[in-house]
Write a protein that binds this DNA or RNA. Structure first.
Lengths: 245, 245
DNA sequence: AAAAGTTTTTTGGCATGCCATAAGATATTT
DNA sequence: AAATATCTTATGGCATGCCAAAAAACTTTT
């Protein structure tokens, strides 16, 4: 009576998740994505990934050189961008229209992104005024899947003296979101690293108005768009003296 | 690392669909639901249904007497009602908040009903003001899964002279919804059957203000809550003369 | 009521999607 | 080249569906 599972089986949820994960990993470390990295990201075993990569390649979504890693084709990139667009539109929609707490929208979007129709996507985008940025500060691909990639780096990678705009935090950790929110930190805030403690210690960071000590996973998850300016003198850097914006 | 498919496998989409279908069929024809009826409803083969019913029984969602049909347990009924609540809340939400066309919401809800969280359900319900009726005129189970079943019958089953309120139409057929909508007919309208043509012919039905000729599948899909009043005289019934409300 | 036919249900074999484990293959580092 | 890290290749399992054939139950005929 009707085709079994999905009408278009080139697009299961698992496949979309793989494309998304490859895309994200690809834009961090450049070049091909390793099987292991992918496995870790998706919380499955490398063996499973390996099998799936064969399928993705057959479908024309990726190019996979054995033992060398995988990259997305144009087609695969389109799949990834569409899912990411869905994800971020949904996050914003849930937060704005339904007032869902900021730290909860990701989890919900993770499922919904695979399930909404193109029509619903359009309606949501229209309702929100075709936004380009989601509540975590991530850019939202346009309907035509254009994507303005802003090159960011983790807060943890900054040197003392470097500053920029805190654009987003990995959206997958509600704990972090809650924590940052409670500390009054939000995407869009300008920041500057005042001091780095040695031995992988925390950073002293000046946000608009307040100074905060941030380290560990948090510093690694927070993404910063560099502005390049150095505003600290050698002296202040050495003493750790604080400079207000 | 993690349980394979669904975190709570007592609740896959397929399982929810079975419960919903059994519930619906059970409230139409009373008593147990036959394997075949279920198979037809779900557009799968009886063989597949048979296998699945064993699993449902193991999970405590149904009681299945071989060759005698299946009924829902309390637990199964709860699953069905929850999914139905999701479905109808989503339909209403899409129609009201996102202005999705009336004839499209069902299809979208059919998928979303299985994936929204309890939290999202609450937010949607709150946004809509905890409604009790969905856009098709179907009642929405409460958060506590109380369900006010209104006994309805198909328009086709009415005799000339009988009247009532058109409460809903099977929501699964967008064509019908479009058609009715174009004809200016909507759930909530009062109606009265003026005349039945013999040989399974169409009915002449008076809606608020206008008279319509309705037959075939349409008359069978439209559900009416009887009011019991007979407003036509013998004479008008015979002549088919129209009486306005 | 027994026999025969029809319908409904179950059984058994098979396919697909996706993941796991274990063992072997290849790269990289030392 | 040996050790280590990384990747692939079986192989197996689970969920869900299909089809075809066997079995059970109802119906009709005799």
């Amino acid at each position: 009576m009707q085709t079994p599972q999905s009408p278009d089986m080139r697009r299961s949820q698992a496949i979309e998740d793989y494309c998304k994960a490859i895309f994200t990993l690809q834009s961090r470390g450049d070049g091909a994505v390793s099987t292991n990295a992918l496995a870790e990201r998706l919380s499955i075993t490398p063996g499973s990934v390996s099998a799936m990569l064969r399928k993705l390649a057959e479908l024309g979504l990726t190019e996979h050189v054995p033992y060398r890693g995988v990259t997305l084709t144009e087609q695969g990139r389109a799949v990834a961008l569409e899912v990411i667009r869905h994800h971020r539109l949904i996050e914003l929609f849930l937060a704005e229209t339904l007032e869902m707490p900021w730290d909860q929208v990701h989890q919900e979007a993770e499922v919904l992104e695979h399930v909404i129709s193109e029509d619903l996507e359009r309606l949501i985008a229209a309702k929100l005024g075709d936004p380009r940025i989601d509540p975590h500060g991530d850019p939202i691909p346009s309907a035509e899947l254009e994507f303005s990639e802003v090159s960011t780096q983790s807060l943890d990678s900054l040197e003392a003296g470097q500053g920029g705009v805190f654009v987003r935090v990995s959206d997958s950790d509600p704990e972090m979101l809650r924590y940052l929110s409670a500390r009054g930190i939000a995407p869009g805030d300008r920041l500057q690293v005042l001091e780095r403690q040695p031995f992988e210690g925390p950073l002293l960071v000046s946000f608009e108005g307040t100074d905060q000590t941030i380290g560990g996973q948090l510093a690694r998850a927070m993404r910063v768009e560099l502005t390049g300016e150095t505003r600290l003198t050698d002296e202040t850097r050495l003493t750790g003296e604080v400079r207000r914006a």
